[in-house]
Design a protein around this nucleic acid. Structure first.
Length: 263
DNA sequence: ATGGTTGACGTTCAA
């Protein structure tokens, strides 16, 4: 079984690339973030034609998450228990979608960006990660053998090796001690990084800003992660970051992150 | 090339 996560940055503008990724990697499950469309706008038909089912959750042009699977989609859940809201009036944004695919409880996650240190959105980000940790820890308390995948755009670079220049990020989000601690808390709750062991080279990135020729200059960040429960981590045989997908006209600014599991 | 990216409900916002 092969599962991938990808911040697609508009599923409508990139549906052909989505189909290409599914085929090229022979994916069973693909988790998308930043689909940027309402459910009724989602390009379901070409995915169905390719043999995939789709569960999506999008409220407007912002955020949006989806699960694409050819091994079934059951028990779909929009948002997680205690997921924080944002704004006034409070809105439960389209940032988390859970489903059971081929016996694995998968979550497509789009962690809030944070915008600026100290911004209301920054506190929202930290709360969001803390509540996710609490809820996900509960899943393992209830069933230590649960097969759970927490995957998506975490908007955190967990170490200095995960950014192209730590000095550039001083005073910016994604690299602060608070964000890193919030990410590490999820790992410490029992969810291991399934990909880093297979992509351990420093300066291995999953995201490159569109501006300033960041991609050709290899100036990126590792902020997209697939974290797995112990039972799931035990099944991982390979993982990779599809850097090729970032190339060419019409690429997302994020690369797909892939995990291969034993049966 | 006084530029420098992309996508969306866009003449602005978010990333």
């Amino acid at each position: 079984m092969r599962i991938a996560t990808w911040n697609v940055n508009s599923v409508r503008s990139r549906i052909d690339r989505v189909l290409g990724v599914l085929e090229r990697h022979d994916l069973d499950v693909l988790l998308l973030q930043e689909t940027k469309c309402r459910d009724d706008q989602f390009p379901t038909m070409p995915l169905s034609a390719a043999g995939y089912e789709v569960a999506m959750h999008g409220l407007n042009q912002w955020n949006g998450v989806a699960v694409i699977s050819r091994v079934g989609i059951e028990d779909v859940r929009v948002g997680f228990e205690n997921m924080p809201t944002y704004g006034e009036p409070p809105v439960a944004e389209a940032r988390a979608l859970g489903a059971t695919c081929g016996g694995i409880r998968v979550w497509s996650l789009y962690i809030p960006n944070g915008r600026e240190i100290g911004h209301e959105h920054f506190h929202y980000k930290l709360d969001w990660l803390a509540n996710l940790r609490a809820t996900a820890a509960g899943w393992l308390s209830a069933d230590a053998d649960a097969q759970v995948l927490l995957a998506g755009d975490w908007n955190v670079a967990p170490t200095d090796e995960d950014v192209w220049d730590p000095a550039f990020f001083e005073g910016k989000t994604h690299v602060t001690d608070e964000e890193r601690a919030a990410f590490r808390a999820v790992v410490d709750a029992g969810y291991a990084d399934l990909v880093r062991p297979f992509t351990a080279e420093p300066r291995t990135f999953t995201y490159w800003d569109y501006t300033q020729l960041r991609f050709p200059k290899k100036q990126g960040m590792r902020i997209d992660f697939a974290l797995g429960s112990p039972a799931l981590a035990a099944r991982v045989t390979d993982a990779e970051i599809d850097r090729e997908e970032r190339k060419g006209k019409g690429a997302s600014d994020h690369a797909p992150v892939l995990v291969t599991l034993s049966d």
